[in-house]
Design a protein around this nucleic acid. Structure first.
Lengths: 135, 135
DNA sequence: GCGCTTTTGACAATCATTACCAATATCGCG
DNA sequence: CGCGATATTGGTAATGATTGTCAAAAGCGC
């Protein structure tokens, strides 16, 4: 336990979680993923799902989003880092990219001497359809 | 029910929460604020603090930040909208402004037809001191 | 195969937030 | 000014996601 032990052993459970994330494109909660694994017949404990997701998140292999609802959502980290535009009403999500934002965040953090920088950004609004339905 | 029932009555409790937020510059959790009110002798229920904060947040009078820790943090909304650079280790927070980000968010959301746009952004990193201490 | 270590996982614990609902305070109005 | 309808309060219970615990089981180096 002296060195930074991340994930040192390959286990059936971790593989299951990884595979599942590879299959599911969008965001899913830990509880969600656990339920899906159960349905598939994979026997993985809820605790393990949480731990694995945390590990993967720490390792930067997956993204975490924390919507106002309270549940954390995890997603396989696609190469292109991008952000989310979420409709307040229907929950529809659009993925958007913002290279300018990335560099801005890096620059600002660097200016204050911060290192190992990451960031989260979410844009909320009302999508055209909901706005129309709202009358 | 056609009209948005926001806050229709002025009560001692709501005033207390507002005043408190006016005093405290930084971010505070609901539980925090409640404890402070208690110490001050103001008798305000925890439930009411939560409700009031939610109302104020909805009305756009205060900002909400949701750090990884899980506790929601509320802050009196200063006129200049700005974001936060948070140290992962010591929790030190630096306020940063990014006009470019604001306009970018608006533009991107608008491009997708979204209206009534708001956004949240947080930058995480390791501050110089913690980075040094980390060796 | 052996043994040391990591990992698992069922369950309990934690903890912020929300629901409930009777008691209370507010405010318009006569 | 007082009354009454109604918004609001607040103690407590419920909710529900996440984390802690720790004995049992599984990996991996040899």
């Amino acid at each position: 336990m002296t060195d930074e032990t991340t994930i040192v052993r390959n286990t059936r459970q971790r593989a299951a979680v990884r595979d599942l994330l590879a299959d599911c494109e969008g965001f899913h909660s830990a509880q969600d993923l656990h339920a899906i694994l159960r349905e598939r017949g994979e026997r993985v404990g809820l605790t393990t799902v949480y731990r694995t997701l945390q590990g993967l998140a720490d390792a930067g292999e997956i993204d975490v989003m924390r919507p106002p609802g309270g549940e954390h959502l995890y997603r396989r980290c696609s190469e292109g880092h991008h952000h989310h535009l979420v409709c307040r009403d229907c929950g529809r999500t659009v993925e958007v990219e913002g290279p300018a934002v990335e560099t801005w965040a890096q620059r600002v953090a660097g200016k204050h001497g911060f290192v190992d920088v990451s960031h989260t950004m979410e844009i909320f609004g009302t999508c055209p359809e909901c706005a129309a339905a709202r009358s």
